[in-house]
Design a protein around this nucleic acid. Sequence first.
RNA 1: GGCGCGUUCGUCUAGUGGCCUAGGACACCGCCCUCUCACGGCGGGUACACGGGUUCGACUCCCGUACGCGCUACCA
Length: 440
Amino acid sequence: MLPARVRFAPSPTGYLHVGGARTALFNWLYARHAGGKFILRIEDTDAARNTPEALVAIYDGLRWLGLEWDEGPEVGGDSGPYRQSARQAIYEQHLRTLERGGHVYEDHGTTRFRSPRQPVTVNDLVCGAVTFERDEPDMTIRRPDGSFIFHFVNVVDDLEMGITHVFRGEDHLSNTPKHIELFRALGGEPPRYAHIPLILNPDGSKMSKRDQGASVQSYLDAGYLPEAVRNYLCLLGWSPKDDREKLPIEEIIRLFRPENLNRKNAAFDLDKLNWLQGEYARELEGDRLQQVARQALRAAGLPLENFSADYIDAAIQTCQGKFRLGSELPAYAGFYFTREVALDPQGVEKHFIPENREKLQRTRAAFAACEPFTADPLQAALKATATDLGVKAGVLVHPTRLAVTGSDSGPSLYHLLEILGREVVLTRLDQALAHPGFCR
RNA sequence: GGCGCGUUCGUCUAGUGGCCUAGGACACCGCCCUCUCACGGCGGGUACACGGGUUCGACUCCCGUACGCGCUACCA
């Protein structure tokens, strides 16, 4: 059997959207599964609609998702060039083949392909055998200005590049008989097609360009992890046929088969993506954790440069396993990096009340005397204070946390106190004790 | 309109004639764990679009209807 050659052939008319990314992903998965080549080809025949920015967005998006191509722009290969705008001569040559075979004719300046008008059966890897009658008007393959139409160049390139398998959106299923006719007229063998279901918006409408969350870039910007997005995209139309949902990409590659693809359009479910994102985010540790967290904190404008690397490392470490999206971090751990804490009004109302005044004062005193100022002794000091006062530790924990972080949720209190250090903790406690809520 | 594809919980799915009084996951609700948050554990409700067949027996096979989506371009 021929080594598999699959391709993703986007046209750079906008950003890379999740539907396109998922198409690229399935092609890539098949190539990796079969030990074949994954080829990127840019379909930029429509000069008016293509932009350089869109081209960069495609490259960046694919690379972010880890879908490296074996042949294509910026990588090279034996079947180039990989941008259609540079392949005009090749198209001219194949057009002559069609002319010689009497397959084309001229019509108002355009070139049209004469359909044999015989039923065509598409043997689709996903949809099975689908037969089309072929009674539509002949397709145009070349415009009066000499530029070629999608159907023609797409087929010529698949032929020239030796493409063996094509995974593409189901919207192309009805185009496929045209492509097969072209292949035959060109004397070539069509690749095996696998038409995959479309991605829908949560409301069931077709997800397209300007829909919320349609851009791969928006997930990158929002701090999603590429492995989470990629894993989620795999689940749209494919499943391992058991109960697993979070799978390492190597396992997905191993299991990926066209037969396991669905035929049903799938709605994009942000909740589920978020869940997977959380699954991956909680596994973050070490350098990767530091890198992801620092980026999120900086993006929120927190002045990390004012703090030592050790301090930042330790602060971030207390967030390990506690967040799903980097963008949650500023609210969760921003207090490490601000001078003044922003007090949560609801928390203030609940915890900064007269009956807590003495409790907080006693806690402050215990911390002031705590030596060393580290998590375990701090915990012991707080618990001892609680015992003296005859209350549960939680009664002291809440106002203390609020005073020191401004919020009633955050990292482990004792660890955060240690990192903040005695001076900051005592200062914030004093500021809190001056709050009017305590002497109503 | 014509042609094509599809239809299992709100969503993603498992299911290829009896294992299904339909399984898992997300989301939701309740309880538990707990210094908060998150995590985790336990429990709960919710689905085979509809109508005909075929069969001893249909979520699974066939036909029809409805609904959704796609194609029907000198867009890709």
